[in-house]
């Protein structure tokens, strides 16, 4: 009987999501479009463009974005989302969906969704972090009645946070690693807040029309860049930076400081753990 090659040699499996150049190109393209969809109220005045449809734009863009997010997810999972990464994403999304309403949301800006995304992105890599950002917010919204036009934007920003956590230098370990992740947490908390406010701003305050009954914090289409920037900065400072964003930054940093080391250990152990049982 002819001997066929009967040796299977599989290296110790690692959990993660591979990002090929196709996935990267779509992530970059969708991120640029996403940034425009978030930043148009300031971007257009900055290049001195008049703005129309300002009142509808948050909705129109919110309707367009999900399609693009889905496209990115489809592209990444086409590249290779194995069962381990998938199950891990599901479980971690569920944990995020549990701790978000349990510890945060409503209680003085305690936002707990970030630290796990950051830690998991660090351990499992940028592709995993990116997807976890998407799925955590999506699962949390579906489970706790948070679906709305803001959801695609939140998902995208959380995806960026996970992506960034995965892209941080690999070699930093020990105390430096924790400090670095805390730094990312703080930056992410404020940037997330500002970006979402940028979207919320015309959405919540309303858009000033033709001098009729304009509130002084409103977005005024066609007004000079500096005017709109001032209005926005005041809006974001008053509504969230001092309260929500700082709360979010503190929560994230403290959570990473206290839980970072043990959680990284647990996650790293899980990354290489795949024996089907202990016997």
């Amino acid at each position: 009987m002819p001997r066929v090659d009967d040796r299977i040699d599989i290296p110790a499996p690692l959990v993660g999501v591979q990002l090929g150049w196709r996935s990267w190109s779509l992530i970059v393209a969708s991120s640029l479009l996403g940034l425009f969809a978030l930043g148009w109220p300031l971007l257009l005045p900055a290049v001195d463009m008049p703005t129309e449809h300002a009142a509808d734009a948050p909705f129109i863009l919110a309707a367009m974005l999900p399609l693009i997010l889905l496209l990115v997810v489809a592209q990444i999972s086409d590249g290779g989302l194995d069962s381990k990464a998938l199950a891990m994403l599901g479980v971690l999304s569920a944990i995020n969906a549990v701790i978000r309403p349990a510890l945060g949301a409503g209680t003085a800006g305690v936002e707990s969704v970030f630290f796990l995304i950051i830690l998991a992105g660090r351990v499992f890599g940028p592709g995993f972090g990116f997807l976890l950002g998407y799925t955590s917010l999506f699962a949390s919204a579906l489970l706790t009645a948070g679906v709305g036009p803001w959801l695609p934007f939140q998902m995208m920003c959380a995806g960026w946070v996970g992506l960034a956590a995965g892209l941080l230098p690999r070699r930093v370990r020990g105390k430096g690693e924790i400090a670095m992740l805390m730094g990312l947490g703080v930056v992410a908390a404020y940037v997330f807040g500002v970006l979402l406010n940028l979207w919320f701003w015309p959405f919540v305050t309303g858009v000033g029309v033709d001098g009729v009954a304009t509130g002084s914090l409103d977005y005024v289409p066609g007004a000079p860049f500096l005017d709109n920037l001032t209005s926005f900065l005041w809006f974001t400072l008053l509504t969230s930076t001092a309260g929500w964003d700082t709360g979010r930054a503190i929560t994230t940093a403290v959570a990473i400081l206290v839980l970072g080391r043990p959680l990284l250990t647990v996650l790293r152990r899980a990354a290489g753990m795949s024996r089907i049982s202990r016997s």
Partner: peptide, 8 residues
């Protein structure tokens, strides 16, 4: 070993 890794 497909899932667990290893040499068989």
């Amino acid at each position: 070993p497909r899932f667990t890794g290893g040499t068989r």
